[in-house]
């Protein structure tokens, strides 16, 4: 494998270059893909004592693997599940991960689970809950945690902060890093008739650990709403926003593709990853 020297955002020195979210359905493609520098695995989908074969092979190739939690409900008022916290820490230990990640969201309340990440009201009370839960998570981790703002088109009437101010305050209070998803920034802006570039400008970009990019589309049932599906190609304006991000931070951040469904053929995925590398100013690996 040809190693390329690439700049990194520096917050997590072990992370650099281009990566991909490992999923069982694309394990074969990931195994064959040259030049991967890092990846992610959904924490709730693995047993740390016996990680999936494909993930173990990535580690053997020297590819960093970040456990990505999706069910901790860090912004939820229900008590944080200690078992899920321990599980995330165990995943990081088992994979030798340089960082773990979770979301600025909640997953359920009042005994009901939503089955997906829900937006929080951007209020002082929500910040208090989030910060306390993030600190509890940090207390069990030997590595930093990166927090990802989610894509949502639903606004709480209680909102007191802009998304960027809310995040900045959260990261300042907890010392956590930012997992910036440029597709989420795009979705949140266009679904409110705003310019994604302005939204990007206001984000705490100096705190970036790594970057997500993913596809999305409008759904025929909901005209005028862009859905961050992770099951469609990355649209042109999202690539453009990645380019804008690279311009703003003066270098290529570690950036990875998230694809969660309707998987295209390997060559289509490869072309998309090449395009991400090219847009970010990262060398395209030898094929």
């Amino acid at each position: 494998m040809r190693r390329v020297t690439v700049p990194s955002a520096g917050a997590v020195p072990e992370l650099a270059g281009v990566g991909v979210g490992w999923r069982p359905e694309i394990s074969g493609w990931v195994a064959d893909r040259p030049g991967l520098r890092f990846g992610e695995v959904i924490a709730e989908s693995i047993a740390p004592a016996v990680p999936p074969r494909g993930v173990v092979e990535l580690r053997e190739r020297g590819v960093e693997v970040v456990p990505h939690g999706i069910r901790l409900s860090l912004g939820g008022t229900d008590p944080l599940d200690p078992g899920k916290v321990t599980h995330l820490a165990a995943c990081a230990a088992a994979l030798g991960s340089p960082v773990v990640s979770e979301h600025v969201a909640f997953c359920g309340a009042g005994g009901l689970t939503a089955g997906h990440l829900l937006p929080l009201p951007r209020t002082r009370a929500a910040l208090d809950v989030l910060a306390a839960n993030v600190r509890r998570l940090q207390a069990e981790l030997d590595v930093p945690v990166a927090l990802e703002p989610i894509a949502s088109f639903l606004d709480w009437p209680e909102d007191e902060f802009t998304e960027a101010d809310f995040l900045t305050e959260l990261l300042e209070r907890t010392g956590a890093l930012l997992l910036l998803d440029v597709a989420n920034v795009y979705a949140n802006a266009v679904n409110r008739g705003r310019d994604p570039r302005t939204a990007l400008d206001r984000m705490p970009l100096s705190r970036i650990a790594y970057v997500h990019i993913a596809g999305g589309a409008e759904h025929p049932d909901d005209p005028g709403i862009y859905h961050d599906t992770h099951a469609d190609p990355v649209p042109e304006p999202v690539f453009a926003l990645l380019g804008e991000l690279v311009d703003r931070i003066g270098g290529a951040p570690p950036v990875m593709l998230e694809r969660d469904g309707r998987y295209p053929p390997a060559e289509v995925l490869s072309a998309e990853l090449d395009r991400i590398a090219e847009t970010a100013g990262l060398a395209t690996p030898a094929r």
Binding site: G76, T77, D78, F106, G108, A109, G110, L112, T113, A114, L118, P121, T123, A125, A126, V129, W156, E158
Partner: peptide, 10 residues
């Protein structure tokens, strides 16, 4: 906040 979150999920 807990009440509002529960209302939204429900």
């Amino acid at each position: 906040l807990a009440i509002r979150q529960a209302e939204l999920v429900a």
